[in-house]
Amino acid sequence: MLFNYLRLLLLPFSLIYGMAIVLRKKLYDWGLMRSVKFNLPIICIGNLAVGGSGKTPTTEYLVRLLAEYRIAILSRGYGRKTKGFILADDNATAESIGDEPLQYYQKFENITVAVCEDRVKGIEKLKENHDLIILDDAFQHRAIRAGLNILLFEFRKLGTLQFLLPAGNLRDVFASRKRADVLLVTKSPVPLLPVAQQASINELQPNNTQKVLHSYLKYGDLQHLYNNESRPLESIKDFEIFLLTGIANPDPLIEELEKYSKTIKHEEFSDHYAFKINDIRKFKSAFEAGSKKEKIIITTEKDSKRLKAAGFKDLLVNLPVYFLPIEVDLFEEDKITFDELILNYVKSDRRNR
């Protein structure tokens, strides 16, 4: 109730923010602010809300789809403590490049991962040695004119009333969706009923050139934080689960874990939260005080990158601490359409023919 009152108090500021967004949008549309186009395929993945729509696994989907090409992923590197252009290498940490870029770098061997708050400068440094560049979370970065814009919408939030910042979590106006080439509805239920599929299309009201496609989450086996051990989710049935997250929207993860256990104790932090020693000590104490004999610690793959930072290993190394990887996939017909659209776009560039 208090949160709703606070939201009402913030609505005037959301109105001012919205006016500023619309003005900036018009300045780019009218050509009064410069937007740079590059002579190689640039795929932009973004959303209108702050976090939680599935940009990271969607980016990874593209990397797998386009594996035969020389790919660079360029990110702002949210949460890093550095500035400027940085290429990921074996010395990279979540503090130096951000947790998501570190995940990309450690997960895929044959790609380049870079961070730069100035995306134009970043592309200038990458364009000569790559066949395409994927911009992670750059839909609002109008200084670049991407060749293909993929805009993500979380299924369960379509049709709900959402407010602009700071009253809500929208950082862009809904009308901005018209700039996108693909409107990808993420975290869809499985199976996806035709009536639900049509409802999201009706909500997004695509123009004649836009595709509305649907994806869903797939969960892998649990992976130990410090060794190569893995175990299927079925193996933790009826365990006491201690869940540690610092992501925007942990609800789908909780729903998945509830299929295996009704005893879930969740320690929730904000997105990209920089865990502190005292946080982990407190969490470890709660785990050790757990009532069940069979118990486990689970976190997300993104959070695992920050938990591996110096200082935490001594606290966690002897505990059953695992992260749960996720992937996205698309429903059969949408997958064919999406893959074909992406591959044709990349192949259409002269350097990739």
Rank of each mutant, 00 (worst) to 15 (best):
V63T: 05
L66W: 00
T82R: 01
I97L: 11
P57Y: 02
A67D: 15
R64Y: 07
Q103P: 04
G51S: 11
V50Y: 08
Y104C: 07
L62P: 09
E109G: 04
Q103A: 05
Y61G: 05
Q103H: 10
I97K: 04
A49I: 01
A114G: 03
S53K: 08
G84H: 08
N91I: 04
Y105F: 15
P57H: 06
R80S: 03
T59V: 04
E95K: 07
Y105A: 06
A92K: 01
L65G: 04
E60P: 12
G51P: 10
E60Q: 14
A94K: 05
T93C: 07
C116E: 05
N91Q: 14
N47Q: 12
S75L: 02
T59F: 05
A72W: 06
V115G: 08
E100A: 03
E109L: 14
F85A: 10
V63E: 03
D99W: 10
R64D: 15
G84T: 00
T93F: 04
G79H: 11
V50A: 14
S75K: 08
L62I: 02
S75Q: 08
V50W: 13
I73D: 00
D99Y: 11
A67W: 06
I97D: 04
L65R: 00
A72Q: 02
Y104G: 06
I86V: 12
V113I: 10
A114K: 05
T58P: 04
Q103R: 10
G84Q: 06
D99F: 12
R64F: 07
D90E: 13
Y105W: 12
T93P: 03
K81D: 12
Y105C: 06
I86Q: 01
F85R: 03
V113A: 04
L102H: 11
L66I: 00
L65A: 10
Y105L: 06
A114R: 04
N110M: 10
F85M: 09
S96W: 12
T112R: 13
D89H: 14
L48F: 08
Q106R: 14
A92D: 00
A67V: 11
F108K: 07
Q103S: 08
A88D: 04
L65T: 08
K55V: 01
S53R: 05
V63D: 04
N110Q: 13
A72I: 00
S96H: 06
A72N: 03
G52D: 06
N110C: 08
D89N: 15
I71D: 00
A92N: 03
N91G: 15
